[in-house]
């Protein structure tokens, strides 16, 4: 026997109204991360000890820069969701928790934006 109302059954969101999306985005970015990270490991290996001219030459290729930016965005979304769960698991003081959740967002967006702008600048000639 189910106690769910017809409305709750159609919307299918449960009592918290969210969570599925978090779970799904964590998995989707995790899956995207697999090829993207293997690509990045290869990319970084080719750039070990490079000088700036080599960096500019490498990122002049839009495919390389494009995939590098995709990597950064996927990783940033994934790691923000991931650390959010870690914080929620261990920090139970409301004020501290909210502060850390905010810092988590700032860090993730900061990483994403600064890395992306840097990659674009290199791509456009350094």
């Amino acid at each position: 026997m189910s106690f769910r109302t017809p409305l709750s059954r159609v919307t299918g969101l449960g009592s918290a109204k969210s969570g599925t999306e978090h779970f799904w985005n964590q998995r989707m970015t995790a899956l995207a991360n697999v090829p993207l990270m293997l690509f990045s490991v290869w990319l970084v290996i080719t750039l070990v000890g490079a000088d700036r001219a080599q960096m500019v030459a490498t990122f002049a290729n839009p495919f390389i820069t494009g995939f590098a930016i995709l990597t950064i965005l996927s990783a940033a979304i994934h790691m923000r969701l991931g650390l959010q769960v870690v914080i929620e698991d261990y920090v139970h003081t409301e004020s501290t928790k909210w502060l850390l959740l905010m810092l988590n967002s700032f860090f993730a967006f900061g990483v994403a934006i600064i890395a992306t702008v840097s990659l674009l600048k290199l791509s456009f000639g350094g």
Partner: peptide, 28 residues
């Protein structure tokens, strides 16, 4: 979980590397 948090923290190094390359020869 520990590796996840480690990877998270380490992105700061990645940003440093990319931003330095975008800034100047000296920084890079």
């Amino acid at each position: 979980r520990i590796t996840g948090v480690g990877l998270y923290t380490g992105t700061a190094f990645l940003v440093w590397w990319l931003a330095a390359a975008a800034i100047s020869d000296g920084a890079f």
